[in-house]
């Protein structure tokens, strides 16, 4: 069991005016699956690549299993990585791909065959060991990449958006497989994605990143329930949280009995916390209704004519486009953010 610690890790690309990562600390407990999530360019992949040893660390310290690895070659860090495009060796068979890392370590052939065999059975690849990557489907290639990672029995798995080349259905299936495998093996993992749903479902610890900084760290449900900033509120949750400007949100907050909000706070409400309430504080003119099956997303405009609101409603009695609908919310479900800094104000629903 091994943990990963980052201490004031900084990354400045040569010639760049600004730091890609201006200084970041993070502790990942042994056996944990930590997901780094954020928009593209937020530095999450750079961070992962620094842990892997593929990017140099400008400043700070990276520890894997109690050992400082800053200056170690990737192969000596006791990690394995699953790449976005799988990065399988096209001229090697499935067996060859999985065995290559072990062979380079000088492991005896018999032992390699045994380990590869075990991993292949675990991943349902036992019948494909003699195939070349090009003879496999996308999902199978992904599993070979996983297999290559697990045969080495590393201290940590690093995943760099491993599901983004799969179609939607396979992505959900593989997501579950990865989680299952990671739990069974109990290997500390860092997983990078820009997909908030993937992040929510996989993570033990979720790290929301923006512009090289950590916006919030915590268990996914806690981040969902209490986003620390407007950025996190908008990024985690689908459809995203409704954000109402101080003036507009005031009605809602006053109705909910939160005095402080009336002046300067931005009010956030999750679409799934809104419910139809005749005479409710929000009067919405419906524009589009998206039916998802179990629920429906009602997109509308508030009566101030500018703020857009999404409500995730269930039931069959939904309004049509052009109709006016009144919505209400439980005061406990309101999120307040400082207008200027975007930081959470700790009084919502209190």
């Amino acid at each position: 069991m091994s943990d990963i610690r980052l201490r004031n890790v900084r990354k400045v690309y040569p010639g760049a005016a600004e730091a890609t990562i201006p200084g970041l600390s993070l502790d990942i407990g042994a056996g944990e699956l930590c997901v780094l999530v954020g928009p593209s360019g937020c530095g999450k992949s750079t961070l992962l690549r620094m842990v892997a040893g593929l990017e140099e660390v400008t400043d700070g310290e990276i520890n894997i299993a109690g050992r400082q690895v800053n200056d170690l070659e990737p192969a000596r860090r006791d990690i394995s990585m699953v790449f976005q495009n799988y990065a399988l060796y096209p001229h090697m068979t499935v067996h060859g791909n999985m065995a290559y890392g072990l062979k380079n370590r000088g492991m005896p052939k018999a032992e390699i065959a045994e380990k590869v065999g075990t991993a292949a059975r675990m991943l349902g690849l036992a019948d494909y060991l003699d195939r070349k990557p090009r003879q496999l489907s996308g999902g199978q290639r992904q599993r070979v990449a996983m297999g290559r990672a697990i045969v080495r029995e590393p201290a940590a798995f690093l995943f760099d958006e491993p599901l983004s080349n799969l179609d939607a259905k396979l992505r959900v299936k593989t997501r579950v497989e990865i989680r299952d495998l990671q739990q069974r093996l109990g290997t500390t993992s860092i997983y990078v994605t820009h997909d908030q749903q993937e992040a929510m479902t996989l993570a033990d610890t979720l790290v929301v990143m923006n512009a090289g900084r950590v916006e919030q760290i915590g268990p996914p449900m806690e981040i969902y329930a209490r986003p620390a900033s407007l950025f996190v509120a908008g990024f985690i949750g689908s459809p995203p949280m409704n954000v109402l400007a101080p003036g507009t949100g005031a009605a809602l907050a006053t109705a909910a009995g939160i005095e402080r909000a009336a002046g300067h706070a931005v009010v956030g409400v999750r679409p799934e916390d809104l419910r139809a309430q005749p005479g409710g504080p929000l009067a919405v003119t419906v524009r589009v209704v998206e039916r998802l099956g179990a629920t429906a997303n009602v997109h509308g405009v508030l009566d101030d004519g500018a703020s857009e609101v999404i409500a995730s409603l269930s039931g069959t009695d939904l309004p049509g486009p052009g109709e006016v609908m009144h919505l209400g919310v439980n005061p406990a479900d309101l999120h307040l953010f400082d207008h200027a800094s975007g930081q959470r104000l700790e009084c919502a629903g209190a």
Binding site: L54, P74, R76, I79, M81, N85, A87, Y100, G101, N104
Partner: peptide, 18 residues
Amino acid sequence: VPDELTEAARIDGAGPMK
């Protein structure tokens, strides 16, 4: 040749000549 292939090889412990 994709960079990822080079990186995968590095992680697999292959030095430059290997």
